[in-house]
Structures are given as structure tokens and as C-alpha cells.
Design a protein around this nucleic acid. Structure first.
Lengths: 162, 162
DNA sequence: CCAGCAGAGTTGTCACTTCAACTCCTGCCG
DNA sequence: CGGCAGGAGTTGAAGTGACAACTCTGCTGG
């Protein structure tokens, strides 16, 4: 352990600028989603995940896993979106079992349109301004960061007897 | 109509990975702050901004400008932090005027320690894993993004007599 | 003079997020 | 059989963030 000194001003400024950039970008995109599609980023994520499942219903745990959201967060979000008529919870087994989650017709419509609109916004605000070099560097950094921090990354290549 | 098409799968995955990376990183850092210093990211930002002002009191509008936060957000956050004893609001003029905001002794202590701890975490989770190439590319991207999206960008380099 | 407009700050409301406590069911094990 | 550990999902409380309505004061123009 070397000395536990604070960041150099230059490092601090780098960090601050990075945080600012990413906050501005996500805020811009969230506003676009709200303005053009009248849905929030959280709603969008859930709609897309269910959309990608095709017609198949998903369980709360699956959604939680796939989005890397806390289960209670999924549950709260589902409650709000059920109120808005985007999703429905159905019973899983005959005798009062776990709930499955699916899109309503309204939810499918919202998902389809939001994917197009949001895709455009992502392109305009994120992809297009990137140079090819920036694209490849940032892509690599993103992958490496996810690999480093993603909690369930237990794909051990070795034999796994447990 | 090919012009307004959705993102290609590869583009979508890039975007998704990037969002995930940045969310994982900020979440990790926020947890560190909470665990080691018992303060939130929002509290940290406000503490640091006031800390950097030296002993000088700041106005709400200044904080709002400097952090690029909504004024109401600053006000709400100040209310919570006043409750925790980190900041105090003082009167500005004699006859019930605008409030100035300053750190309490408790707030200064929290700021000092959080800056050290958080600096370490930023270094460990963000700065250290970057290659020199990634550092320079991401720094450039951040600056360019902030310049593009920052609302008030009227910093004329010339001296400002007003 | 005073009506009203503009700026600073606050408050309210609603949605989002996290954490912990809770319910309900299932499977296990004595 | 009976109970209990544990997983799935929900609920509640508190903090966070965005937006709009509101208060208060000073300024300004008719």
C-alpha cells in the first residue's frame, strides 16, 4: 500500500468530465423518450426485455436477472406499468402459483414505437458523434468493465462439480 | 422506408454494453461511498462542491449552476443534509433575504474523509484499469460530449467585465 | 404610486431506486 | 405428520431526481 492520497487535480477533472458526459447523455436520451414516446427509461428497459422474449411470458426473477435489477425494483416497476396498462401479471400454475409477466397489446405498441424512436436518438446522440477509433476503444472498455464488475460471471471453464 | 430503421443488433449490443458498464461502475462507486463513508453520491457531490468553495458560503443558484442540478433538487438535498447536520443555511441580508449555504464542522469532516476514500475507489475502479490509449480516447470523448450537450456554454475566453 | 413581472428559493407531487422486512409456497428432513 | 429452511415475489420506508406551482422580494414602467 502506497500513500492513500487524493486524486490529482487532472485526474479529478477527468473523472468529473466523464461523469458529466454520461449524465448529460443519459438525461438527453431519457428526455427524448419521455417527450417522443411518453415513457421513462425504466419503462423502456422493461418493455424491450419483454419484447425480446417474443410472446413468451417471463418470470420476475428472469427479468431481474436479465436487466440486472433488484427484484423489488422489478416488482415496483411492474406495479406502475400494470397501472398504465403496459404489462399484465398472470398466474403460473393452477393453484395460485408464481406470476408470469407479459406485454399487453398496448405494451407491444409502445415497445415497437419506442424502439424505433429511441434507436434514432441513440444513433444521433451517441453513435454518430463517435469516430471509428473512439467506437472501438469505448466498446472494448465497456466489455472489459462489464466483465470485471458483473456479479454473476461464474462461467468457469474448468470442471464444476458442485 | 429504410431511413428510420432501428439499430442493428451490433449497434444495439454496443449501446447496451456501454450503458451496463457505466451503470455497474457508478453503482460500485456509490456502494463504496455508502459503505465506507455512510454518505450517498448526491451528498458527496454537494459536500465536494461546498468544500471546494473553501470557507465561503454559496447560494443555491450557484450550487445549481455548478453541479448542473435543478434548483429544486439542490433545495431538497439541502433539506435532507441539513437534517443530517452536514450543512447549514444562513440568512444573506439583514431583513430575511436569500439564504447562503455552508458546511458545518461535521460536514467538513465528512467531506475530507469522503474525498480521500472516494478518490481511492475512483482510482481503483476507473482510472487504474484504463490503458493510456483508453484514457486519452475517453477523455476526449467526454470533453466533446459535455461541450455538445452542456446547456450553458457561453464561456467566452476573453476577460469578462460584467 | 402601484401593478405586475422577473429572479431566487421553496414546496408538492410523482416516478424511480435501494434496502430490509414480510408473505406464501415448496421441499426437505426428522 | 409437522415444522422449518429457503426461494420467489411483494410491500414499506426513505433517499433521489424531474417538473411545475408557489412565495417572496425587488424592479420597473405606466
Amino acid at each position: 500500500m502506497t500513500e492513500t492520497r487524493s486524486l490529482e487535480p487532472e485526474e479529478w477533472e477527468f473523472w468529473d468530465t466523464w461523469m458529466r458526459a454520461q449524465r448529460l447523455l443519459t438525461r438527453e436520451l431519457e428526455r427524448g423518450l419521455q417527450r417522443d414516446c411518453d415513457i421513462s427509461k425504466a419503462e423502456f428497459s422493461l418493455l424491450v426485455t419483454l419484447w425480446q422474449a417474443g410472446g413468451r411470458e417471463m418470470r420476475v426473477g428472469e427479468l431481474s436477472e436479465s436487466l440486472d435489477w433488484d427484484k423489488s425494483r422489478v416488482s415496483h416497476q411492474l406495479t406502475r406499468m400494470e397501472r398504465r396498462g403496459f404489462v399484465k401479471r398472470t398466474q403460473y400454475g393452477a393453484d395460485g402459483r408464481r406470476a408470469g409477466v407479459g406485454l399487453t397489446a398496448e405494451g407491444r405498441r409502445a415497445a415497437r414505437s419506442a424502439i424505433l424512436v429511441h434507436g434514432d436518438n441513440v444513433r444521433r446522440h451517441f453513435l454518430d458523434p463517435l469516430t471509428p477509433e473512439q467506437t472501438s476503444v469505448i466498446r472494448a472498455w465497456s466489455k472489459q468493465t462489464v466483465a470485471r464488475l458483473e456479479p454473476h460471471h461464474n462461467e468457469a471453464a474448468a470442471d464444476d462439480a458442485s
